[in-house]
């Protein structure tokens, strides 16, 4: 075996050991060293040279990046997640024919979809979705994310929240928690438009707070226009901001002038 390859795999073993110990600081340190070492392999993307150890090297590199992605989730670092995922992606797309499929592929792709959903990057979410085959779409990890997006778009928020109990992979919990916060903001936004008032206990239930205090704090911080009295939350204030009826004179003048100009050109 190639000495360089042996060295990297030994390093990677140490990384995995630290990973199991949940010693994430050591992991991060080892990971950056590993990444530097990977640059020396010429069989990796973007070169894809056909070296004798190509399959070994590619598999190892893919393994390392897969761990890197999972590590970034444990670290709760979304930027690192995005970086590592993009480094990992060529191994799933361009190196598909050279390597046996990885068992981690679908969980990680699903994780990425979930991340895009949490960050509200729906266009990218759909772009990624187009890349998946119909077999991939049947995979529970991917399906989970796709169904979440659908429920989210429809407004069936309680379905989004109940999905947290059925996560297909333990790494998903972090993003599901983030999603829960987004959902709460959405519900709050919808409620203030849809209801005239709500009883405090209903509001608490709807916004997923465990105590009334949390609700009061939330409404103070995020929605100071809500009025809370007599055990009810009134949303009236938020609605009274309808624009007063005024003739949009400037706009009208502009339009009329442009008609005049155009007509002059014709006649």
């Amino acid at each position: 075996m190639d000495p360089k390859l042996t060295e990297v795999s030994q390093f990677f073993d140490r990384f995995k050991a630290a990973f199991v110990r949940k010693d994430f600081d050591t992991c991060t340190k080892l990971l950056s060293e590993l990444k530097v070492k990977l640059t020396e392999f010429r069989s990796l993307p973007p070169l894809f040279e056909d070296t004798p150890n190509a399959v070994h090297e590619l598999t190892l590199a893919r393994d390392i990046y897969e761990h890197a992605v999972v590590l970034s989730v444990k670290d709760e670092d979304q930027d690192a997640f995005e970086r590592d995922f993009f480094q990992l992606k060529p191994y799933y797309t361009d190196a598909r024919n050279r390597l046996p499929p990885s068992p981690q592929e679908y969980p990680i792709l699903g994780l990425n979809l979930l991340r895009l959903l949490v960050q509200n990057r729906i266009a990218e979410f759909h772009t990624e979705l187009e890349l998946l085959s119909s077999i991939a779409l049947e995979n529970p990890c991917i399906k989970h994310a796709v169904e979440l997006e659908q429920s989210f778009m429809e407004g069936a928020y309680n379905r989004v929240l109940s999905a947290r109990q059925t996560v297909p992979h333990e790494t998903y919990v972090y993003f599901m928690d983030l999603l829960a916060k987004t959902v709460r903001d959405e519900i709050a936004g919808c409620s203030e438009k849809a209801y005239d008032y709500l009883s405090i206990s209903d509001a608490r239930q709807m916004l997923l707070f465990t105590s009334d205090q949390e609700l009061l704090k939330y409404s103070e911080e995020e929605h100071p226009e809500w009025e809370i009295k007599n055990g009810f939350v009134y949303f009236q204030k938020a609605k009274e901001t309808t624009p007063c009826k005024e003739i949009p004179s400037l706009q009208l003048i502009n339009q009329t002038l442009s008609y005049a100009r155009e007509l002059e050109r014709i006649v």
């Binding site: 429809e154 069936a156 309680n158 959405e186 936004g189 438009k193």
Partner: peptide
């Protein structure tokens, strides 16, 4: 919640 979102 669907109705609420449609209203919003």
């Amino acid at each position: 919640s669907i109705v609420a979102k449609a209203i919003r």
